[in-house]
Design a protein around this nucleic acid. Structure first.
Length: 235
DNA sequence: GTCCAGGGCCGTT
DNA sequence: AACGGCCATGGA
């Protein structure tokens, strides 16, 4: 019996509860503070194949220099930027990627993320994917967690869980995304989808870290009754 | 010391 | 289309 994505969401939410990743503080005042969405955008790049604890160090470095602003990074000295993001690893490419994106936002949107996110969702995704260093997961993380737009983020954990559970999707990014979104759209009201995509992605990361690791820890997993992989283990 | 983390690019088949 | 090498730090 196949496990539907909405059933996966219900089980994980009941087991682990609300994760509340990257909530955007909408009470900030534009003139006095940097846009909190920009920190999320930078974090989405810095966390590429990297532990979040390392990303936090890099974000703290940037924050301590008041560098979490589009114009500051767009006009920054590249070596300075490399040193600030160094703890997040791959610091040469990440400094370039971060600066490149900041320059794009500076030149085309005058540092105004409202103007940027006001575009059509599909066109925004194409635009992000055209930038060097922004692939599908980073683009979708920016759209979902910074833009609060309804798009599901597929990562290596999602792919692994889709392979092990009887979820009926191939292993390509777009196929998994389409399969999950289609079922969730059928099940929940449109107004709730963005929040559900947000939570389900975070819950999948949690499940993959606690149980569905490369070497799986199945005996206390909330999904063991549904998992074909577990049933193939000779426990 | 070894493994690996909330990927993406580029060159080769 | 799919795969392999590469990029790099820090915590377990």
């Amino acid at each position: 019996m196949k496990l539907k994505p909405h059933a996966l969401y219900e089980i994980l939410m009941k087991e682990f509860g609300n994760q509340n990743w990257w909530p955007i503080d909408r009470t900030y005042h534009k003139k006095n503070h940097s846009d909190p969405r920009f920190e999320v955008i930078i974090g989405a790049i810095l966390t590429q194949n990297t532990a979040w604890s390392n990303v936090e160090k890099a974000l703290e470095n940037l924050k301590s220099k008041n560098m979490l602003e589009i114009q500051k990074i767009a006009e920054s000295d590249i070596e300075t930027l490399q040193n600030l993001v160094r703890p997040s690893g791959f610091f040469n490419q990440k400094a370039s990627r971060v600066k490149n994106l900041a320059q794009h936002l500076h030149q085309n949107y005058h540092d105004d993320l409202d103007e940027f996110f006001d575009n059509n969702l599909h066109e925004l995704r194409v635009e992000l994917l055209s930038l060097k260093g922004i692939g599908p997961e980073t683009a979708d993380s920016i759209l979902l967690y910074a833009g609060n737009l309804p798009i599901f983020v597929v990562d290596a954990y999602t792919k692994r869980i889709c392979e092990r559970l009887p979820l009926d999707a191939s292993n390509s990014y777009n196929d998994i995304q389409h399969y999950l979104e289609t079922d969730l759209k059928r099940t929940y009201p449109e107004k709730e989808l963005m929040q559900i995509y947000n939570e389900l992605h975070a819950l999948i990361v949690l499940l993959a870290k606690n149980h569905c690791k490369k070497k799986p820890v199945c005996h206390i997993c909330p999904l063991q009754n549904h998992c074909k992989f577990k049933n193939n283990l000779s426990q």
